[in-house]
Design a protein around this nucleic acid. Sequence first.
DNA 1: TGTTAAACGGAGTATTACTCCGCATATTCA
DNA 2: TGAATATGCGGAGTAATACTCCGTTTAACA
Lengths: 193, 193
Amino acid sequence: MTDVKKSRRRPRSDGQRNREQLLDVAKTAFTMGEVDIPLDEVARRAGVGIGTLYRHFPNRDALIEAVYRAELDRLAEAAPVLAAQHPPVEALRAWMRLFVDYIAAKQVIAPALNGLVGGTGALYAHSGDVLKAAVNSLVSAAIAAGEFRADIEPLDLLRALAGVSNFSAGPGWESSAKRLVDILIAGSRSLAS
Amino acid sequence: MTDVKKSRRRPRSDGQRNREQLLDVAKTAFTMGEVDIPLDEVARRAGVGIGTLYRHFPNRDALIEAVYRAELDRLAEAAPVLAAQHPPVEALRAWMRLFVDYIAAKQVIAPALNGLVGGTGALYAHSGDVLKAAVNSLVSAAIAAGEFRADIEPLDLLRALAGVSNFSAGPGWESSAKRLVDILIAGSRSLAS
DNA sequence: TGTTAAACGGAGTATTACTCCGCATATTCA
DNA sequence: TGAATATGCGGAGTAATACTCCGTTTAACA
C-alpha cells in the first residue's frame, strides 16, 4: 500500500520548521482556551503566511487533529512502561491517572477536540486506535490475573475518562477525576474470590 | 432581583410561535448531525427572517443552549419520579440509563454541546445545576440507605456519563454505555456489609 | 554556482456571522 | 369596531473568518 515513491529530495528544513512552529502556536493557543482563534492569527504568531498554514493543514480540523494526535501518542507510549513496572491493576490505575493529569489537566484535548466529534468522527476512528490499544493491554492483563471480571470492556473505561476531561473546569476538579478512576476500578473488579 | 417590570402587554403570539419553530428546526438539524448548519438556513427552514432568529437568540451559542436546556430540564424532572418508584440504587441506575437513552442516543446533546464547552463554560454553570440537583438527590438516597459509600460524589458519576455521550458513535455503542452504568454503580457500592 | 522542485506569502474570493432600521401587525382601549 | 402604539418582522448591508491561487523565493542537489 501507500508506496513511498522514490523521494528524489530530502524534505526542506524550513518546511519542517514552519510546521512545528504552527503546531506549537496552535497547541499553546488551544491550551490557553483560545479555541476559536482565527487561523490568520495562528499563522501570524508562528511568523508564517496564511498560505503556509493551509499547505500544512488543509483546514482547521486538520490542525486540531495534529495537535491532538501528538499528545495522544505520548500518552499511549506510557502504557507498556507502566505495565512493566507495576502489577496489572496498579498499572491501569496509574495510566488512568496519567490520562487525567496529562490530557485533561493540560487542557489540550478537551477544548480542542470539541467540534471535531460532531464533524466527521474521523479523529476518533484514527487516533482512538492508539489509545484503545494501550488501555486494552492494561485491562487484558488485569483480567488475565483474575483481578477484573472478564466482561469488562476497556473502551468503556476510556470513554468515561474522556468525559471527565470535558468537564475539566472549576476548582477541585482534579481530585474529582481521581475519585472517578477509583470508582471505575472498584466497579471492574472480580466479585470476591 | 430581576424585577418583572409592569408588563403592559401580553407577549405577541407570533413571537412565541416563531421562537418555537426556530427551536424545533435547530433541534432537528442538530439531531441529524448538521451541527454546522448556517444560521440563515435555520431561519429559512423555520420560515422566518434572519433578523428574527437573532432577536430571539443573540448568537449561535444561545440557540444551541436553548435547545440543550429544554432537553436537560426534561431529564432532570424524571429523577424524583424514579426515586418514588424504585429503591434508591435502582432509581439511580434507571436514571442513568435514561440519561444514556435520552441524551446521548438522541444525539441532541453530544454534538451540539461541543464548541460550547471550550467557550464560556456558562452552559455548564447554568444548565448543569438542574442535572446536578437531580443526580444529587438520587445518590444521597443511596448513601442514606447504606448502599453506597459515603464518599461518592454525585458529580463524578455525571461526568463519566457525559463523557460517554460524546463518544456516541459506531455500532454497539449503546450497550457499551449501559455496561458503564453498571460499572459505576458497582464501584460506588459499600464494601460488603 | 546553476537548476529545479519544494515551499513561501499574502492579495483576493467565498462563506458565514451579526447589525440596523423602516415596515408590519398583534394587543389594548375608547 | 377602529385608532394608537408597542412589539416583533424582514432582509439588505457590514464584519469577520475560512480558504484559494499563483507569482516569487529558497533549500537541496549535482
